[in-house]
Amino acid sequence: MAATTEEILAGLAEIVAEETGLPTENVAAEKSFTDGLDIDSLSMMTIVTHAEDKFDVRIPDDQVANLKTVGDAVSFIADAQA
């Protein structure tokens, strides 16, 4: 069953928090991964790998660069699950 966008955001926030040590409440939809959350490319790929696992979706490497914000990632995962 597909997760709601709220559930995806909460799940993604847990993954980001685990990787970065930031509190989950900092991982808001409008936050930029690079500028807002200071996530480098290796950390981003780690987050993608865990997100693919958690939400049972495929996020192709050539799509990752388009995921500028947390909200972009939530939308991508929601669409991929649909």
Partner: peptide, 10 residues
């Protein structure tokens, strides 16, 4: 291979 973590080498 897709499930391997990016930090494996470092």
């Amino acid at each position: 291979a897709r499930r391997m973590l990016p930090m494996t080498v470092p």
